[in-house]
Every structure is written in C-alpha cells, then in structure tokens.
C-alpha cells in the first residue's frame, strides 16, 4: 500500500475514511459471528435474536461503503494503488456481508438445534473450536489489511484450508449419525448447516486476504493455488 500523502489532503481523508469504514464493518461482522456461536454454545436465545436483528446493520454498512467507493471513483478517478484500494474495499464489503449472513444463519438455527437434544457436548465443543479458528482468520485478515501486510494475508489463506479440513471431519461424523439415527436427520442437517457456515466464514476470511494481495500487489490471486500465490507475491 502506498503510504505517501496525496497533494490533496481531502483525497487522503476520503481514502482513509473508506479504509476505516471497512475495518469498522469487519468489527461488527466479527462480533455478529462471535455472538452467534456464543448463542449456540450457551443456548441463550436473546443473543441469537440480537444477531438476527443486527444483520440489518451489516447490510446497511455494505451498501453505504459501496456507495462511498463509487463516490471516490467518480470524484477522484483514482489510479494504480488508489484504484486497487477502492476496488478492493468494495470486494471486501461483499465478503464481510456474507460472513454476516452466516452469523445470522447460525443464530437462526441455534435454538432448534439446542432444543432437539442432538447437540451433544462433543459437537458443541468441536463447532466452537472451528468457529474460533475461523473468527481468528477474520481478525488476522483485518489486521493484515490495517497494516498492509502481505505475509499476514498469505498466512490467512493457508490457514483457511485447515479450518476446511476440520469441518469436513465434523461433517463426516454427522453423516454417520444420520445413518444410525434416521429419525433425527432434520436436526442433524441443521447442525451440518452450522458447520458448513463456519467453513464458509473461513473461506470468506481467505477471500479478504486475497483482496488484500490484490490491493498491495495488483495481482488477482482468486483462482490461483497457494504455491502460485506465494511465488507471485514474494517476487519483486
């Protein structure tokens, strides 16, 4: 990221505002996700309801920040790293909004899952652990963005794959339980949907890291393998 100042102070201020707003949105989304998982772990329905209600705020933030991006483009015609910053922020809001959706989904399903009696301590623990890992990735991605750190971004992309593997293991055991317990398939599917949502949060954190690489380097790594990404980003 180019940290030198523009001749136009107002332009600096516009870009700084974009950056801080997307970080703000990241904070809101991280909290939504944390509360959703806490609602599941604790069985507190008030927390779940709060997450569902707050999702509107997340959606609003996405629209507002995108609008800010459009205004900066129209007013400033940003080029090079500035243009990539604006486009990258706009892409980030999309992923953050999706993380918000996943939080809402977990919150929505939590009550039914808790009341079914199928949510055993083991599954709750495993789910909580993977969710913490996914949330850690989200935070790391946002921190890397704030500091403009390429290495941090690459670490997030790599770690996101690990979360995916953990979730697959949980899903396999749920599939096994479905076979043993056909009468509970509906709730077991809900549980699986929760695990899937956690997995998607990790994916979106990985996307955030990819957008950061794009902002810093100008290379689109969305469909590249990890090795390609490392090779691409560490050169120059």
């Amino acid at each position: 990221m180019n940290t030198s100042e523009h001749i136009s102070k107002q332009y600096d201020a516009d870009l700084a505002a974009l950056r801080s707003r997307v970080v703000e949105m990241g904070g809101v989304v991280e909290e939504q996700f944390r509360f959703a998982v806490d609602a599941l772990s604790s069985g507190r329905s008030d927390l779940a309801e709060q997450v569902v209600a707050n999702d509107r705020r997340v959606n609003e933030l996405e629209v507002e920040i995108d609008d800010d991006c459009a205004h900066v483009i129209a007013k400033r015609q940003p080029a090079a790293s500035d243009l990539r910053m604006v486009l990258g922020v706009s892409k980030m809001t999309t992923d953050l909004e999706r993380i918000g959706d996943k939080a809402r989904k977990i919150a929505r399903l939590s009550a039914a899952v808790r009341s079914s009696g199928e949510a055993d301590a083991r599954w709750l623990e495993d789910t909580h652990r993977t969710a913490d890992a996914a949330r850690g990735l989200l935070r790391d991605a946002l921190n890397a963005f704030v500091r403009g750190e390429l290495e941090g971004a690459i670490a997030v992309i790599r770690a996101a794959q690990g979360v995916g593997q953990q979730v697959s293991a949980i899903s396999r055991s749920l599939v096994k339980r479905m076979g043993e317990n056909p009468g509970q398939v509906a709730v077991l599917l809900d549980m699986m949907a929760i695990n899937k949502a956690v997995d998607r949060v990790a994916d979106h954190a990985g996307n955030l890291a990819e957008h950061l690489i794009y902002i810093i380097k100008g290379t689109d790594v969305r469909h590249a393998t990890l090795d390609q990404i490392e090779r691409e980003t560490l050169q120059r």
Binding site: N2, S4, E5, H6, S8, Y11, A80, S81, D82, L83
Partner: peptide
C-alpha cells in the same frame, strides 16, 4: 502504468502524491 506502475515515482505522480 496506470494500474500497477513498476516505479514508486510513477505511482506517486499518477496518483497525485508528492
């Protein structure tokens, strides 16, 4: 040059920086 200039001086010029 306008999307990812190689040189920091070029970048600073086209993005309106000192």
């Amino acid at each position: 040059v306008f999307f990812r200039p190689k040189n920091k001086q070029t970048e600073d010029y086209i993005t309106g920086r000192f």
